[in-house]
Computed example of a mutant assay.
Amino acid sequence: MIIKKITAITVLAATVLMAGCQTSQGLYHWGEYESGLFGYYKDPAELATLSEQLLTAIEAADGRVAPGMYAEYGTLLLQQGKKEEAIAYYRKEKDLWPESRHLMDAMINNLAGTEDTSVQRDE
């Protein structure tokens, strides 16, 4: 009898604790990005659809833009010939995620065709 009460209390406590840990939203907002990317890999003609889905996900992120999403969108813009817009999104990625600074600086410098001497290099 006591074991049944202890088991019931333990199960109830575990349920309450686990329910309290559940969140309705993930850490980042991905939108339909994953399914759009899969569609694009299957059919590269879906570039415009993927771009639209990624931009929608970025706009709906409400401050929870996932790492790499700005850079990915910038690359999609670059594939569409929109170099200046791509650079703007690479800068947004660099500003939001400082750990991407070196890669984004290299991408920006490559697109700009000039070497920015203010970029520090690790040697």
Rank of each mutant, 00 (worst) to 15 (best):
T15A: 09
A19V: 02
D122W: 15
R91D: 08
T7K: 05
I87L: 09
K83V: 15
V65S: 04
I2P: 00
G63I: 02
Y33V: 15
A106I: 01
Y40M: 05
I9S: 04
G31C: 11
N109R: 11
A106R: 10
F38L: 13
D43F: 11
T117F: 06
Q53V: 04
A71N: 04
G113C: 10
I58H: 04
Y89V: 02
A112Q: 14
Q53G: 05
T75A: 08
E72F: 10
L27D: 02
L76S: 00
Y28H: 07
W97N: 15
S100A: 09
S51W: 00
Q79L: 10
S35V: 11
N109A: 14
E52D: 09
V65A: 06
A8S: 05
E99M: 11
E123R: 06
Q120D: 07
G81L: 04
E46C: 08
I9A: 14
S51Q: 07
V65D: 03
T56R: 06
E46Y: 06
E32Q: 08
A61Q: 04
P98A: 06
D105E: 15
Q53H: 03
E72I: 03
P44T: 12
E59K: 09
M104T: 06
L27I: 13
R101Q: 13
K4H: 10
P67E: 12
T49G: 11
I9C: 02
M1S: 14
R101S: 15
K94Q: 15
G113T: 10
V16A: 03
Y73S: 11
V119F: 10
L47N: 05
L47F: 06
I3L: 12
Q22H: 11
A86P: 03
Y33G: 08
M107L: 14
V11I: 10
E85R: 09
E32D: 13
W30R: 01
G63W: 00
A86G: 03
S51C: 14
L103H: 14
K4M: 10
T15C: 02
I108N: 01
A71C: 12
I6Y: 01
A66K: 10
G39D: 13
E32W: 01
T117M: 10
A88F: 15
S100K: 08
K82Q: 15
I2W: 05
A88M: 07
M104D: 12
M69E: 07
Y73C: 05
L17M: 07
L50S: 04
W97Q: 11
M69K: 01
A112F: 06
G39K: 08
W97F: 15
E84D: 15
K5M: 06
A48V: 14
H102G: 03
T23M: 01
Y70E: 02
I3C: 05
D122I: 13
L77W: 05
L37I: 07
P67K: 12
G68P: 11
A86C: 07
M1W: 09
R101A: 15
G63A: 07
E72W: 09
D62E: 14
P44S: 14
K82S: 13
T114M: 14
G113R: 00
Y33H: 09
V16K: 00
Y28T: 04
K5A: 05
E99A: 06
L55F: 04
E123Y: 15
G68D: 11
N109L: 04
L111H: 02
T56I: 12
